[in-house]
Design a protein around this nucleic acid. Structure first.
Lengths: 142, 142
DNA sequence: GTTATATATTTCGCACGCGAAATATCAAGA
DNA sequence: TCTTGATATTTCGCGTGCGAAATATATAAC
């Protein structure tokens, strides 16, 4: 029972290792992992509201705003006001964004498979359940 | 085989939820989770080299430098040059740092236990092994 | 219709972690 | 000794995520 704060630390390190790996992999491709997440979501939900994207990716709206800024500046995405509701903004993929997203998806799939290497289906299931349980244990807000 | 980039996303969300929870919990106590990590490590290795701390916490030395800055400014920690090697800096806990670390340890333990709620020992073992496996799959450098 | 309130998004300042480059010191070799 | 190379740390600029507050628009109450 050596390390005290074990799971917290393990999760933190695992997260950082993964992010580092993804970002190094994609550094050559001018795409960060956060931005890739947006591309993937918009690939299935083009024109989604900024708020919906932020919700889907589980980041705070203010964080989404900056992320959209950088992606728009990079030409991956375009903001468009909603016709119905003047407050809302919709995010649309550009052609560049679509293509970059498609290529990133392939690489991401490889990494995702690598994450399962050495573990049985049942074990991965436990891991999935555990990761998901954190969302219930630490709900979004209150 | 529903979601594509499943484990990556699950891990990312889980990490953010955990960090948010810890930081909200400790916001009242003037301590971030990264700084708590340093306090815990120094609690067992007071006077460790900056490089050793960065290695132990698995963050890059340049990140450690800024972290030490903020903690020194907050009066939790003090830098002291090494007698043997003029390049090295040693980090020492202040009294305030020791006390804050002790109180944070209690809260951290609670959260850590909560992370295991609803899972058997064997299942937690699988999770631990999986989290640890990421360190081997994505080694520190090259 | 005007006021009050709710909702969507943005802005601001901050902590964090990264990579690349700079700085300072140490260790060897010529 | 002088130079060359290694090591420890820092500085810089950037992307990311947070909370709090501002802004703009929509909706409800009166």
């Amino acid at each position: 029972m050596r390390a005290e704060h074990r799971l917290i630390f393990l999760l933190t390190v695992a997260y950082r290792r993964l992010q580092r790996a993804i970002d190094q992999e994609t550094a050559t491709h001018d795409l960060t992992s956060a931005q890739a997440g947006v591309l993937f979501f918009l690939g299935r939900n083009d024109g989604a509201l900024i708020g919906d994207v932020s919700q889907a990716l589980d980041i705070v709206p203010s964080a989404m705003s900056g992320l959209a800024d950088r992606m728009e500046r990079a030409g991956l995405v375009k903001r468009r006001r909603d016709g119905e509701d003047g407050r809302s903004q919709r995010l649309h993929l550009t052609v560049a964004g679509q293509e970059l997203g498609k290529r990133a998806a392939t690489r991401t799939r490889v990494i995702n498979n690598r994450l399962m290497d050495g573990f049985s289906e049942a074990e991965i299931d436990v891991v999935s359940r555990w990761l998901t349980s954190l969302q219930e244990k630490f709900p979004k807000d209150v």
